[in-house]
Design a protein around this nucleic acid. Sequence first.
DNA 1: ACATTGACCTGAGAGC
DNA 2: TGCTCTCAGGTCAATG
Length: 275
Amino acid sequence: MPELPDVETMRRYLQATSLHQRIEEVELHSAGYLLYDHQASRSEVARRLKTELPGRSFSSTSRHGKWLFVALNGAGELNLALHFGMTGGLKYYRNPAQEPEYTRMLFRFDNGYQLAYISMRKLGAVRVTVDTEVFIEERELGPDALDPDFDFNAFKRTIADRDAMIKALFLDQKTIAGIGNVYADEILFQAGVHPRTTASRLDDEELEAVYREMNEVLRTAIERQAQPGDFPSTYIAPSRHGDGLCPLCGAELETVRVASRSSYFCPNRQHEKEG
DNA sequence: ACATTGACCTGAGAGC
DNA sequence: TGCTCTCAGGTCAATG
């Protein structure tokens, strides 16, 4: 479930390990579905990866929602775009014997090191794009949840008059980019808002709490490098596959389906609004 | 406009 | 042990 904090952690990792090294070769290991695209064929994406990257090097990184962008130096603007789907990560290493299981792509550098793109379930995506802004617009991604310009007023404008459930809006990347199932539940738990609450029925106090906790939870998770084991003891995330109890009051957590996902919440702290 | 479902993929864990 | 079923959850398309 790489969501915004996980992807930000990977971005920092790639930034710290893999910049300014000449790419010798790009290897694909049964990466077919990762290259699936409705606009370009898989073979076209594979061809671009294998022919356009060697000779260049990674020069900088950025992120929008769950997408990690890596700029490549050289003649003409070029960016690698990585999405990790539900499972996946990166590993930079030297010894070929350390190649991680489920490595789907390898970037071999001229210093003998390599960067592995790992994805067990292959639900991620790898693309080559010229302009990241165009890429974001083509996918109609909403503002990144931590974009400084996405202040409370902007948040209120996108949320306050919507008739959808607040949890569904968090999951919709066209509304806000970066939040997935686990962090949506955490934010709503911390804000004391039931996941099925219709967004337009949130009062100002609740809207402020949700906005505040969205920032607080995401920033805290990034600080802890997206490791649920290191989260504050007041967080609900570790309980969803742990004891199933509310970390604040000890009540048994309940689940409800929203947008076809399991939503964990505390029945004492998050009440469904009366019709 | 919004909700639901299934497809894509693969491993973990449960139940028999 | 080993088989089968369900679940996990990111995104998109199709359908109600």
